[in-house]
């Protein structure tokens, strides 16, 4: 069950956030659902931050792993030559 506090604060905030984004008609042939759209807008906002951090972390860690494997790659190439 959702508490009355949630009802008073959570939903109006969601609605304001949703209405704050400018919208235009871009309908699809399936109904995306109003509640689903609002949730998606919120999730996308939060997840984008997580996703960006994750992407940078992967880039950073692959940079280090490349550096450390550089010498082995070079020796492999030499062997091929």
């Amino acid at each position: 069950m959702i508490s009355p506090v949630m009802n008073k604060i959570f939903y109006p905030v969601m609605l304001i956030l949703f209405l704050a984004v400018s919208y235009d008609r871009a309908y699809g042939y399936i109904d995306p659902g109003s509640g689903s759209l609002i949730l998606q807008a919120l999730l996308a906002g939060v997840l984008a931050v997580v996703f960006t951090v994750k992407t940078w972390w992967h880039k950073l860690s692959s940079l280090f792993s490349k550096k450390s494997s550089c010498s082995t790659d070079a020796s492999k190439n030499n062997l091929k030559d």
Binding site: S22, Y23, D24, L37, Q40
Partner: peptide, 12 residues
């Protein structure tokens, strides 16, 4: 509420 533009970034 059927649809909107400029609401969610591509990254999102």
């Amino acid at each position: 509420t059927g649809g909107y533009k400029k609401g969610i970034s591509r990254k999102g």
